[in-house]
């Protein structure tokens, strides 16, 4: 058997696809099926452990057995497409949101997004300061056309559920007293001094940051209630740390 065919068959087996193992001409101390299961188990266990590390709140909410099934489904349906495992969890929240088996757990995808956002924000070590000097170089008409940028790894979420309360409750192992009917808008972002920060946003703050996220120009942002206050606050907290001119759009 050619090496390419052998590796294709081996890979299919790892991904739980039907393979005639006898064609691989394998030998060893155990039946071939058991030997191959060692490799398959190592593969799943290592990726499952990685996902558990990235999504501790999801793991705590659903329990070990459910999480392992969730991870297994993710690994099979969204195989690792990069040798660098670091970003493999990127699509886990979206995967959960589309999975029929989690349709009753309406807040689970949001919790996964918070886990991932927290994991990524923690990894950021330096956030650039807002370039005020560059802004001063623009005339008033040019300034009105600028689009603000939020720092990398900033997560903005609007949920019909009390996501942040649940997420923090899981961390404290105390979910009692949470009003599940309470919608929450929240932000999670890296911080130069505190690793990652997360807090609730009022509707005006959320509208402001959503507009920035959608690429609104400064002249459009001016129409949002408490615009100046929001701008100062989020620049001060390094959430907004850059801008592009309208010409770059």
């Amino acid at each position: 058997m050619k090496l390419a065919d052998l590796q294709a068959q081996f890979s299919k087996h790892l991904l739980h696809q039907s393979v005639d193992l006898s064609s691989l001409n394998l030998t060893g101390p155990l039946p071939v099926e058991q030997l191959m299961s060692l490799y398959r188990n190592n593969f799943y266990v290592s990726l499952t452990d990685y996902l558990k590390g990235c999504f501790p709140s999801v793991d705590a909410l659903v329990g070990e057995e459910f999480f392992e099934q969730l991870a297994k489904a993710y690994i099979i349906q969204r195989p690792l497409d990069n040798p660098d495992i670091e970003l493999y969890g990127e699509g886990f929240s979206r995967f959960i949101s589309n999975l029929p088996q989690t349709s009753d757990l309406v807040y689970l995808a949001g919790i996964a997004a918070l886990d991932w956002g927290f994991d990524r924000a923690k990894a950021v070590t330096e956030i650039a300061s807002f370039p005020f000097a560059e802004l001063e170089g623009l005339d008033q008409q040019q300034q009105l056309k600028i689009c603000f940028k939020m720092s990398a790894q900033t997560l903005l979420l609007a949920s019909d559920y009390p996501l942040l309360s649940i997420w923090q409750g899981v961390a404290k192992d105390c979910l009692e007293g949470i009003d599940m009917g309470c919608a929450e808008n929240l932000i999670l972002h890296p911080s130069n001094t505190q690793g990652a920060l997360f807090y609730l946003l009022n509707s005006s703050q959320y509208e402001f940051l959503s507009a920035i996220s959608a690429g609104a120009r400064l002249q459009q942002l001016c129409e949002i209630e408490d615009f100046q206050q929001h701008l100062n606050y989020f620049i001060g907290n390094a959430v907004i740390n850059g801008f592009t001119t309208g010409d770059e759009r």
Binding site: F10, Y39, F43, S46, P79, L80, P83, I85
Partner: peptide, 16 residues
């Protein structure tokens, strides 16, 4: 080896 058809297996798989 650890990849096939652009799928990665996060493991060190045996070579004949």
């Amino acid at each position: 080896w650890s990849s096939n058809n652009s799928r990665y297996f996060n493991d060190l798989l045996p070579v004949p």
